[in-house]
Computed example of a mutant assay.
Amino acid sequence: MHKKETNLSHSKLANNMMNYINKNIDTDINIDAIAVEYGLSKFHFHRIFKEQIGKNIYETIKSIRLQKASNLLITNKYSTITEIASMCGYSSQTSFIRAFKNRFEQTPTLWRNGGYKEYSNNILHNSISSDVSHTSFSHLEAKIIKTKRKKLYYIRHQGYNKELSKVWQKMMAWVYTNNIENYEQIAIYHDNPIITLQEDCHYIACVKVDDKTKLTNTNLPYFEIEEHLCAAFEVEGIYGDILKFIQWVYHYWLPSSGFETTTFPSFSVFEKNHFLNDDGIFKVIYYVPVRYV
């Protein structure tokens, strides 16, 4: 197999595994069984994943579990700590508390009772892009809708930074190569950048094309997201505002909304993409998954 084909194969495997982890974070993920399904040895499977993602699989799963749990503890006031631990794949509350304390240096109870505020403020203090934003979002109102299933071609990027302009340029090169006229630009935020350092955040730049579109170049990986109940917000601003907006949604709007969120990530559908426009202004509809309680 040629080097390019090998790299594409390895990239597809690692991306499929990341999608699987995020989709099944509430379960006991059996890595050995998955490696067998791919026809690979455990060693080879782990090596490919780390080579492509930059972390080993177990570290990745643990990080995703705790990041999602840290959000749910803030937003889901009707759920017990045991229920949140279960939603994030922990079989016991004891193991969850121990892992959470090692990661955030405080117990889930202290975090839920306001400890997250100081932690979040420290993240913001060290974030240049967030620090320049002084926009207020308290005037925004949500519309509760049910989104449709979407098939998305994507490029995964670690870090919320100006490098995303290059990622979106590459995505658009793929769009132009395939002569796609009707499409949507979508950003998926797997991490809350107010809790996770921006350089560690996983961002996915996606394009949704019409199912009838014939593609001449299909090197990009794809996945499908199912329909979800979401709160939708129409938002516009400049670089850095989106991070402050996400903080407002998770730290202020959700806890008082009467809804709870899920482990599914939030996402934005662009009307205007600030990573592709010289004026740096974005206009999006932001969707945060919610559930009725």
Rank of each mutant, 00 (worst) to 15 (best):
R98V: 15
K50C: 07
Q52L: 03
A99I: 04
N19A: 08
T80I: 07
K148A: 13
L197R: 11
F96N: 00
N113R: 11
I64D: 04
A232C: 13
R156N: 12
Y176M: 08
S268I: 05
S120A: 11
T216M: 06
H134Q: 13
I29L: 12
L229C: 12
E226I: 10
Y252F: 09
S9V: 06
S127L: 07
S257F: 08
E37T: 09
A205P: 00
A187F: 06
F96Y: 00
V284Q: 05
K208N: 13
Q93M: 11
T261S: 10
K151I: 14
K62T: 11
T94Q: 14
N76D: 15
L220S: 01
G159A: 11
Y286G: 00
T213I: 05
F264I: 02
K68V: 07
E51G: 07
L8C: 08
K146S: 10
I84D: 02
D210N: 14
Y160C: 11
I281P: 05
C201K: 02
I81S: 03
T147D: 06
F49Q: 01
I155E: 02
N71C: 12
V207T: 07
T196D: 04
K150V: 02
H10T: 05
T213M: 10
A99K: 02
S63R: 12
L276K: 03
M17N: 01
K151A: 09
Y176G: 05
E51D: 14
I225M: 13
G39V: 07
N30H: 08
V284L: 09
A14C: 06
N178R: 06
I123W: 09
S91T: 14
K3A: 09
Y90A: 01
I97R: 12
N121M: 15
P255R: 03
N22D: 15
Y116K: 02
K12Q: 11
S95E: 14
E141C: 09
Y183H: 04
T216G: 08
Y116D: 05
S70V: 03
F223P: 00
E260L: 09
T109Y: 06
F270N: 07
C88D: 02
S129C: 08
I84E: 03
K151P: 04
N217A: 04
L164G: 01
T261N: 12
E118N: 09
Y78I: 10
S138I: 14
K101P: 05
A99C: 08
L164H: 00
C88Y: 00
F233D: 00
A142D: 07
P255W: 04
V290A: 10
D211G: 01
V207C: 02
Y119L: 11
G39Y: 08
A173F: 07
F223H: 12
L110T: 13
K62H: 14
Y222G: 09
L13S: 10
P108H: 14
H46M: 10
I123C: 09
E224A: 09
S257M: 04
C201L: 01
E141G: 12
T177G: 00
L276D: 05
D32C: 06
I81L: 12
E224W: 10
D200R: 06
A69I: 11
S133N: 04
Y239V: 11
E5N: 07
